[in-house]
């Protein structure tokens, strides 16, 4: 049985702003087995990108990890110094495809140089060796090796996205975080990139952590799903369970709000209201003000974590035994 490649325990990432502490990620725990893929879904501002940056220890100031543990491949990275993380963990064990890959490439360097740089820096390859290796990775993501001599402006959006994916893979990490990897792309290119990610998942056995607001993309790729709301994971479980038998009222409402292309045209629903201010979240359940099942206790006390099945849990008073 494969061990856990990633364990996150009670992670808290706060932004210390002048106007107060923004609890962007507040007591988040989950585990991921080797080769397993996780989809993190939620509305904008729910803390999903901050969670990703925390895993890489790249939280921008004034943010900082305020508590909890992140264990990547058996090593606790929260205790490491920045230098150690840089030399041992970041990009070697966990890497990232950043949001808006269009702008993630440096316009004044060739694609090849940008791909080869981590190899020269981390593995001590010569420039020639590194460029050879870079060519291999370009082929892996479905690009012609000649692309190494091109500059980013000569490539289309889909090609740039492929380059950025190759970049994330080049040091053979076990986990790749993809933050909204297809939002800026057209549907046809999006489908091609998703196919590529599926192929890489199968061939290289990497774990992909997919962060997106689009639940249909998660349905294409992930094994496990975490639904985030206002800094907390409100539901966590296997894809089939969360999509077919959603338990948390937020997950249910979210799934009912997406228009579908095929099948019956059902009336769309929406969630009234807006997400809470994370500087000053509601006293009880953070979803209570928008929840149609909200009870008295929801407004008073934070909900307990209920284990519905060994791998399916939900943060909601509805399932608490009284």
């Amino acid at each position: 049985m494969p061990g856990y490649v990633l364990e996150v325990e009670h992670l808290k990432t706060y932004y210390y702003t002048y106007k107060g502490i923004v609890k962007a990620v507040d007591d988040v725990s989950f585990k991921l087995k080797e080769g397993e893929s996780l989809g993190i879904a939620g509305e904008s501002g729910c803390g999903k990108s901050t969670l990703a940056y925390s895993l890489l220890k790249l939280v921008p100031p004034p943010g900082r990890i305020a508590g909890g543990r992140i264990v990547i491949d058996g090593v606790d990275v929260t205790r490491m110094s920045e230098a150690e993380v840089r030399s041992k963990v970041r990009w070697k064990k966990i890497s990232m495809v950043f949001q808006g890959a269009m702008n993630a490439l440096n316009p004044v360097y060739t694609v090849g140089y940008q791909l080869a740089e981590p190899l020269m820096y981390h593995k001590g390859y010569s420039k020639k060796e590194a460029l050879e290796e870079a060519k291999k990775y370009l082929q892996l993501v479905g690009l012609s090796p000649e692309v190494i001599n091109r500059y980013p402006h000569e490539l289309s959006g889909g090609m740039k996205q492929r380059v950025v994916i190759a970049m994330a893979l080049i040091l053979q990490p076990k986990i790749v975080i993809a933050d909204e990897p297809t939002t800026a792309l057209d549907v046809v290119v999006q489908a091609q990139i998703l196919n590529l990610l599926k192929k890489l998942q199968k061939e290289l056995g990497i774990s992909i952590i997919l962060i997106t607001h689009d639940l249909s993309i998660i349905a294409e790729l992930a094994d496990k799903v975490a639904i985030m709301y206002a800094g907390k994971i409100v539901e966590f479980g296997p894809l089939e369970k969360v999509f077919l038998e959603p338990q948390h009222p937020y997950t249910q409402a979210l799934l009912r709000s997406i228009p579908r292309l095929r099948g019956e045209k059902s009336k769309l629903e929406w969630i009234p209201g807006t997400p809470p201010d994370l500087r000053n979240p509601p006293l009880g359940c953070r979803f209570a003000p928008r929840c149609r099942f909200a009870m008295d206790i929801c407004r008073r006390e934070p909900p307990p974590e209920i284990q519905l099945a060994p791998d399916h849990r939900v943060l909601c008073w509805l399932y608490a035994k009284r």
């Binding site: 549907v187 489908a191 249909s216 349905a219």
Partner: peptide, 26 residues
């Protein structure tokens, strides 16, 4: 091609490659 490329929130489609009948780029 456009219709084939639209992702669906349906877990049974997982890991299946999407066949988008189109070549090249715009």
């Amino acid at each position: 091609a456009l219709i084939a490329a639209v992702p669906e929130p349906d877990p049974s489609l997982r890991h299946r490659f999407k066949d988008v009948p189109i070549k090249g780029e715009i």
